[in-house]
């Protein structure tokens, strides 16, 4: 497949009302299917809302065909691939912020958020378990990788996905708007847009981002979902602060053209990286970072 029609579902959610959010998902999935989309990308925690706090354990689901929330989604995935955000409760009852990729009635991959911001206005580490793996996976459009919000504020997760073969990064977030100044966009929006465009450039890959809108108490989510191509060109951008279903055509042959011109992936010296990482992390030099 060399063309992919992507739909960015930039939605508001009801906090803790999974049934209402499911209904909205199915409605938008129907619209995207009717427009001939191949994949629809929902934002972080799209089935639950973001600031869950003590609601967390009551809205957790498992992405299986006998789950009442996932059954209709899996059925719909026979028509269109999708990424949905939810709280995943594992078999030992740990709760993760998770994205599931559903296709042809099956769960192709589940990503658990590996970076839980627990600073400033964020308190995710208090309520959620830390994900522990970063894996690319194969889809009918090629190999892709999923990351959730703070995951892509760190450079290593997209880098690992790139090395693991992902040519399309599917990024989801529920990013609270902050940093109002005299610019026509918030500092948080500027930061994310710069970063995502840089990933597209540095990894010569497609980078699609679906962000939430709406309010939770005094927090608001700024939207502005984007898609960049392997040249770092902006292919599509949803409006700020408003719900939108944004359609964009991805010409996957752009990977061939960009990488023929700019062989950053070919030349990436992973063995050098491994050697140097080993040295840095193994050193007793207290300046080196040797964290978890």
């Amino acid at each position: 497949m060399t063309k992919m029609k992507l739909a960015l579902a930039q939605i508001n959610t009801k906090l803790g009302d999974v049934d209402a959010n499911l209904e909205k998902h199915l409605n938008l999935i129907g619209k995207a299917t009717a427009r001939g989309s191949d994949l629809i990308l929902f934002p972080e925690l799209s089935l639950t809302g973001y600031t869950l706090q003590d609601i967390t354990p009551t809205v957790a689901h498992r992405p299986t065909s006998d789950d009442p929330i996932f059954r209709p989604l899996l059925e719909a995935s026979n028509e269109i691939d999708m990424v949905v955000g939810f709280v995943n409760e594992d078999e030992r009852h740990r709760f993760y912020i998770a994205d599931a990729y559903l296709s042809e009635g099956k769960v192709l991959h589940v990503h658990h958020k590996v970076y839980l911001p627990t600073y400033g206005l964020f308190d995710e580490g208090r309520f959620f378990a830390w994900g522990d793996s970063i894996r690319a996976f194969d889809t009918r459009f090629g190999r892709v990788g999923m990351l959730i919000c703070e995951d892509f504020w760190h450079i290593s997760p997209p880098y690992l996905l790139w090395l693991d073969g992902a040519d399309i990064l599917l990024l989801t977030s529920a990013s609270p708007g902050r940093g109002l100044n005299d610019d026509n966009r918030l500092e948080s929006a500027r930061w994310v847009e710069h970063t995502n465009q840089a990933y597209a450039n540095l990894f010569t890959s497609f980078v699609a981002h679906s962000n939430r809108v709406g309010y939770e108490d005094g927090l608001h989510f700024w939207g502005g979902s984007t898609v960049y191509d392997p040249n770092g060109e902006l292919l599509a951008k949803a409006p700020y602060q408003e719900e939108a279903l944004t359609f964009v055509d991805l010409d996957l042959n752009q990977l061939h053209r960009t990488r023929a011109r700019l062989p950053l992936l070919r030349d990436e010296r992973t063995a050098l990286v491994e050697r140097e990482l080993g040295r840095i992390l193994g050193s007793n030099d207290r300046k080196a970072h040797t964290g978890r």
């Binding site: 708007g177 100044n181 005299d182 026509n184 309010y215 608001h220 700020y240 602060q241």
Partner: peptide, 19 residues
């Protein structure tokens, strides 16, 4: 710099009231 973009501020704050 305490200057704010008043269009964006109005959008966020009126949206907050409505929501």
């Amino acid at each position: 710099n305490l200057d704010i973009n008043t269009t964006l501020a109005t959008k966020i704050l009126s949206g907050f009231i409505k929501s």
